[in-house]
Design a binder for these strands. Structure first.
Lengths: 225, 225
DNA sequence: GAGGACCATGACTGATCCTTCACGGCTTGT
DNA sequence: ACAAGCCGTGAAGGATCAGTCATGGTCCTC
């Protein structure tokens, strides 16, 4: 669940990032309207928390430009209690308007409410190869139409590689993403799990076509065999 | 555009009725939870404005019973500033929570926001498997043409899985949806209830074909055996 | 107040998964 | 050719997770 936090106050950004991370959100942050709009197009967050009073743009303008192409829930955070501002934001397309100071619990509840009724816009993110397909939404892998059973760790690694299909993912990055920051030297694990993934997915596990090793650098998910 | 105003204060009822009428709404009013629920079923309002502190029923209960069959936007109006109350209402299914005193303009803007994103209600889908069918609209399960009796909790879990048929649903998500945010570690419950569901629905409960466990990941409703 | 339905909770057993190690092949540089 | 890394493979112990059964509690009905 990805959330985009837009605020020009570094303190707030930090506090929000910590709080939201702890609740299991992936957090993007932006300090101005332009980078907010860019990040929104790149990462497609499921919720946007928008502070008013950005340096480069009116809040209403950010809302309108987001609404130009996206239905993502927007929750406005603001210190201004002006009723007119609330009405303008809500009528521009914001979903909710919370005035500072607010409790984190309340904000989280409002985020859940917004997510709950969000249009399930989903484009089906499925990564296909010549031999199997990875359904990132359903969290499952099909090979010849049959489901392949993966363990949590196996899936975690495969998902990471598939989301970066065609690109090299470094060993450090995999270890960090899957096992956390304290396992960056356990390249052992990668060898074991990559072997298991190949055994389950590759036509000829001894000569991988899709899960490619780049010696000393990392691994790469290749779509075309 | 019909709106249902629920409040036990005659003054407020009158004021709201006048204000909303002037904006072109058709207004129903109820002074307690029971008549609110009855009016909601009879007139199918497009928005519900719900005051807390009704004489006969907790606000959360009204929300839950409405949500049992309706997706109508619910905006809670309350003099209580307690954060816990807000969280409970929002997590029970309320769309917004406005604290008194509030400006009429703000309320109207929030109503417009709620109406805007209200989904035109979907047709009741039925999820079929080789052994039974789940009627999400009628909230019941048929097996060999006969109704299977499910307890509320069993149904809640089955409904969640069936709505996401084919997709993996994590344990956390089920626990959060069914028991609330404070039960995310009670994986015990899932084991017990999944066993009960299998006993009632699976042809061979010891070897489930439709309610699939993925160890460490979650559960999956599988349509095809 | 007796009974039944439903829920919460704990204990036990079996299954699954993770970690770790050992060994051998392959590549690279000297 | 040899040594040193790096990688792939298989297997074993221990940790974690799931299925099952049993128990006590609460609420509602009769």
């Amino acid at each position: 669940m990805r959330v985009l936090v837009v605020d020009d106050d570094v303190q707030i950004i930090r506090a929000m990032r910590i709080n939201l991370r702890a609740r299991g959100y992936d957090v993007d942050t932006a300090a101005d309207g332009a980078s907010a709009l860019r990040l929104a197009t790149e990462h497609l967050p499921q919720v946007v928390l928008l502070d008013l009073g950005l340096p480069d743009m009116e809040g209403v303008e950010v809302i309108q430009r987001l609404r130009g192409w996206s239905q993502v829930p927007i929750i406005v955070l603001s210190a201004r209690h002006s009723a007119g501002e609330k009405v303008r934001c809500l009528d521009s397309g914001a979903d909710d308007y919370v005035t500072k100071p607010f409790g984190m619990d309340e904000l989280l509840a409002r985020m859940r409410a917004a997510e709950r009724r969000a249009v399930p816009l989903e484009e089906a993110p499925v990564v296909r190869t010549g031999s199997f397909e990875v359904d990132l939404g359903a969290k499952r892998v099909l090979r010849n139409g049959e489901e392949v059973r993966l363990t949590p760790t196996e899936w975690h690694i495969l998902e990471l590689l598939a989301r970066n299909a065609g690109q090299l993912v470094s060993q450090r990055q995999i270890l960090h993403d899957v096992w956390g920051p304290n396992y960056q030297n356990e390249t052992n694990y990668l060898r074991v799990y990559l072997a298991q993934l190949r055994r389950k997915l590759e036509p000829d596990p001894a000569h991988p076509r899709y899960l490619i090793t780049e010696a000393g650098r990392g691994y790469r998910f290749e779509r075309e065999g």
